[in-house]
């Protein structure tokens, strides 16, 4: 049973046919070729499939594509939409918060959701908010540094 749906991904309206059982993650990666959103477990445990729905982080592997209609979807590919890098992206590079990079999109998007609400978020709040994204390389300390640094830039009115 194919259903025609409309998704707004990174401010762009996409019309496509999906099966009800297709997750948002499958549609983003396979139909829309936005492979920056990763699949690390498919069960909501690792956070590598993080996307923002109306600015809030969700696990795209646990959301049916159908349910993503009528929402604003942001993937990692949408962060440097307007040319330059998002302050978080630059901070991740500068602070050395990237290792193998597989968790990086999920980390950056989770952090964006936090800093958009509270660019002054401190270390403990960052830890709590990002705890749903696992990183086996152990980039956590430098991710925290990067988010703090990006917060500094963002509260300066970026």
């Amino acid at each position: 049973m194919k259903i025609l749906i409309e998704l707004t991904v990174n401010e762009e309206l996409c019309r496509l046919e999906v099966e009800p059982q297709q997750t948002l993650l499958e549609v983003l990666r396979e139909a829309l070729h936005l492979t920056g959103t990763k699949e690390g477990c498919g069960l909501g445990d690792c956070g590598t499939c993080m996307v923002l729905i109306d600015g809030k982080p969700v696990n795209a592997c646990l959301m049916l594509a159908l349910d993503a209609q009528r929402h604003q979807i942001t993937t990692i590919e949408g962060l440097d939409n307007r040319g330059g890098l998002h302050p978080l992206q630059q901070s991740f590079i500068d602070a050395g918060a990237v290792q193998c990079g597989f968790c990086t999109p999920g980390m950056i998007l989770s952090a964006k959701a936090l800093l958009d609400i509270n660019p002054r978020a401190g270390k403990e709040e960052i830890k709590k908010t990002l705890s749903g994204v696992l990183c086996r390389c152990g980039s956590y300390p430098k991710v925290i540094e990067a988010v703090l640094a990006a917060g500094e830039k963002m509260k300066g009115g970026h």
Binding site: Q89, G96, V98
Partner: peptide, 11 residues
Amino acid sequence: PRLDGLEKVTG
């Protein structure tokens, strides 16, 4: 800063 950083932060 690592050479692969840009590719990795942009997905």
